[in-house]
């Protein structure tokens, strides 16, 4: 299934939204996200994954992101108890909305991880890119 235009060789642009606790202690305070420069990954730290609203995800896709990967804490590890659960439910809701308008729900995903190294976080973003590559670029990029 394709919801966009196939563009061989074009790397999907992935926005990585991660809970601050999803990053390992050693990398905190460092400008690790600069390692994403030149890649098709944009990393944004959140105070808690529950801060992610449905509208944020949709606006990222509307503005041309090919995929969004959210990194939330595992169940029972969320510092705010139910924050990551709420994030997961919102992601499921967004995926349902995308399906209804003919977009691949795989364009949005969530991983439940703690204390990830920068390399591990980028691997999660790359895995999301792999999951959407077959769907082509985001249709919002058409006619840019």
């Amino acid at each position: 299934m394709s919801d966009g235009n196939q563009q061989p060789g074009q790397e999907p642009e992935v926005v990585l939204l991660y809970c601050q606790h999803g990053l390992c202690h050693e990398a905190k305070g460092s400008a690790w996200y600069q390692e994403c420069a030149g890649l098709s990954i944009r990393a944004i730290m959140m105070p808690c994954s529950s801060k992610i609203e449905v509208s944020y995800i949709l606006k990222l896709l509307e503005s041309g992101a090919d995929a969004v990967e959210v990194v939330a804490c595992p169940e029972k590890s969320c510092k705010y108890l139910v924050g990551s659960l709420r994030a997961e439910r919102r992601i499921e809701y967004v995926r349902g909305l995308l399906e209804k308008i003919g977009y691949a729900p795989e364009r949005v995903g969530i991983s439940r991880k703690l204390s990830q190294s920068p390399v591990q976080l980028m691997d999660l973003a790359r895995a999301r890119a792999d999951a959407v590559r077959s769907f082509g670029i985001n249709p919002m990029k058409k006619g840019e």
Partner: peptide, 17 residues
Amino acid sequence: EKEVETLAPLLRMALKK
């Protein structure tokens, strides 16, 4: 307001597609 800001991008995406 939340729903307006959710529905608007959704409709824009659907119509653009």
